[in-house]
Nucleic acid binder design. Structure first.
Lengths: 224, 224
DNA sequence: AGAATGCTTCGATGACGGACGAACTATGCG
DNA sequence: CGCATAGTTCGTCCGTCATCGAAGCATTCT
């Protein structure tokens, strides 16, 4: 018998389908209400509420009360990283349960992964940035290249972040099975994309839909 | 209802205490037999066998048959990374279940984490290497410093690894709650420590026990 | 061949936990 | 103040899964 951190407790919290769906939904980065999460998970409101209190007790969620609305969100990047890691294993290990439908097609192209961009667009972007040596990658490790500061400054992003999170991190993309860019830099780029209105978030989904002109702008800046 | 990788399936595999104990035991890096794992998990042999076949079916384990012995091991670094991530959250989120006993004291000092060294010794080593700028750390990202190649070459470690895993990675230490060194470099250092007989693996445990002279050698090389 | 060891499968038992409807609490609105 | 909306708590039902003993296979040793 071993001791230490109670890993089974945490894993079993994620191990229920309803709760896993809720956590996956919250990977979109925005906090959601109990009703929205009930819908996402496909369970009744009481059931969802029970799951949410368990997740809260387990420390995986934070709660922000605003009037009669109660917004649940992921407790932090560490929790998001854990979900990512589990998702990566699940994608690598098991065949998909269902054939991706039309809505999933949009998800494959571009979607939000906690606070940064994921999907084919994101993978292509990272590949191009590495090819241009703006970023350097030894396998799964990513770091800034010599020209990174000036390159990102030109598009209004400051890479000299003193934040506690890493500036760039690799995050395994479950649809493409290759890495895309996470970390504060990944988050800043997504902010930029949304701020410039190159793309908008699909309602009730993690999908990110580019407008025709937005897509051109994105390609000009990141894929040129 | 969302689709995609079946994260609940994977998480629920880890979510059973017996299976979690087995996986934690296998983080030691060496493959173990069903009987050993039953002992680790504190369950009967039939129960352990049932759990093991579930873990196999879930793709989390590999099996190597040698005569009448069947050795179970973690399926790969990605699975190990997932366990680490869950352990990190569990350590950050929940208080320890039990007070650490004398055996756990040895574990806190130095232990094996999949294929590299963890514990106070490992954390001190990383701190010192960063202070000497052999390695560079921006928060949780670790990379080689300019003097890294010559420094490690002097102790017989080649950092120019072309392996598919990252050379250095940060791995959150659940006992110290700070990072230690993982990746191929971390693995090479542990190999060195064991090859030089500075320390030996404790039987039936992840603990690594340094001999008095071994400890001096370790401190001379890594903590000077 | 026969015995011993290592492990898996079978079958029965029992308990934990997820599900929902109904009732209850809280906030906001007219 | 009464009604509507958002959410939690309670009670109960039911399915799933962990558990173990006993029996069945497989491999090695003598």
């Amino acid at each position: 018998m071993r001791e230490g951190p109670d890993i089974a407790r945490i894993a079993s919290l994620v191990g229920d389908p309803a709760r896993a769906n809720m956590l996956t939904a919250l990977m979109g980065g925005t906090a959601l209400t109990a009703s929205e999460l009930a819908l996402e998970a496909g369970v009744s409101l009481p059931t969802a509420s029970s799951h949410l209190s368990k997740l809260m007790e387990g420390g995986l969620l934070t709660l922000a009360s605003q009037g009669r609305h109660r917004y649940y969100g992921l407790a932090g990047p560490q929790v998001a990283g854990m979900i990512e890691a589990i998702t990566g294993v699940a994608a690598a290990v098991g065949p998909q349960r269902v054939r991706p439908g039309p809505r999933d097609a949009a998800m494959r192209v571009a979607r939000v992964c906690y606070d940064h961009l994921a999907g084919e667009q994101a993978v292509a972007m990272l590949d191009r940035l590495v090819a241009r040596q703006v970023l350097l990658r030894d396998d799964k490790e990513i770091r800034l290249g010599p020209s990174a500061a000036s390159y990102f400054a030109a598009i209004g992003i400051d890479v000299e972040s003193k934040a506690r999170r890493p500036v760039c991190r690799a995050c395994l993309d479950w649809s493409v099975r290759r890495s895309h860019l996470a970390g504060t830099l990944g988050a800043a780029i997504l902010d930029k994309i949304l701020a410039e209105k190159w793309a908008r978030r699909e309602k009730d989904s993690r999908a990110v839909v580019f407008s025709p002109t937005g897509r051109q702008a994105f390609e000009r800046v990141f894929l040129a």
